[in-house]
């Protein structure tokens, strides 16, 4: 059976590897492995190109984690802690709107979840610690984020609304890792269906008018719980069968 082709948006980032120090198109391998482990074939979609024609070749797309979305895209002034990634913003807002228009199966992870909200008229909280008075969405107190191992992500519960796609996937509760300092304030055309019970920070959004458009604020690609990726791959397969019948 052919594997569905899943695009992953990628960073354009100055990066050090081996003896090299240069601008690269790049993405942590966790995302690639998560797609391959759940039956898809990953290709990286670089942000250095403003076109959306690549979507015609994909069966599904993941909008991945990364830097902050420029608040200008939701009509706010930048907070001092906001570090924007303008190149990715331009490419991903276009791609997100085009993917939703085409009803391509879409998964948003962390920044990608936030791009979903902003691309459909929503808005973000720019710095959670000022809103909720703690920084537990970024890391456990006393851990070193520089170590960059999965255990350094702050862990917390998410409670999930009944009668939602997320509920079908995860049930009433899911325990998640967390590494972000911004969050969705207004989900735009999406609907919030999962929250952190301690502080009501939005953790899951989904689009009621699309076959599969789900955003999660955490990082499933860094865990053994790949249910969000499984759901994307399944939606991508169904999408293609429908296309084949038509």
């Amino acid at each position: 059976m052919r594997r569905p082709l899943i695009g992953l948006t990628s960073y354009a980032q100055h990066v050090q590897f081996g003896r090299n120090d240069m601008m690269a198109g790049m993405l942590p391998m966790n995302y690639v492995k998560a797609v391959h482990a759940t039956g898809g074939r990953a290709v990286l979609v670089t942000p250095d190109d403003p076109g959306t024609d690549v979507l015609e070749s994909l069966d599904g797309i993941v909008f991945t984690g990364g830097g902050d979305v420029d608040p200008a895209h939701y009509g706010a002034e930048p907070h001092p802690q906001t570090e924007v990634d303008a190149i990715r913003d331009a490419a991903e807002l276009l791609l997100m709107r085009a993917a939703l228009d085409a009803d391509l199966p879409v998964l948003g992870v962390c920044r990608g979840h936030q791009v979903m909200a902003v691309a459909t008229g929503g808005a973000l909280h720019q710095h959670l610690p000022e809103l909720i008075g703690h920084d537990r969405h970024r890391a456990h107190a006393g851990t070193d984020p520089l170590a960059a191992s999965a255990g350094d992500y702050g862990r917390h519960d998410v409670v999930i609304a009944e009668d939602s796609r997320a509920h079908d996937l995860f049930g009433r509760h899911v325990s998640v890792n967390s590494f972000h300092h911004q969050a969705v304030a207004d989900p735009g055309e999406f609907v919030a269906t999962g929250w952190c019970p301690d502080d009501r920070v939005i953790e899951i959004i989904e689009h009621p008018g699309r076959r599969f458009a789900l955003g999660v604020q955490w990082h499933p690609e860094r865990t053994a719980d790949l249910r969000a990726f499984v759901a994307l791959t399944e939606a991508a397969l169904i999408d293609r069968k429908v296309a084949a019948v038509v």
Partner: peptide
């Protein structure tokens, strides 16, 4: 690869 706060993450690049 290393960038930002991240150090030596296995990366496709």
């Amino acid at each position: 690869a290393s960038w930002g706060v991240w150090r030596d993450l296995p990366t496709a690049l």
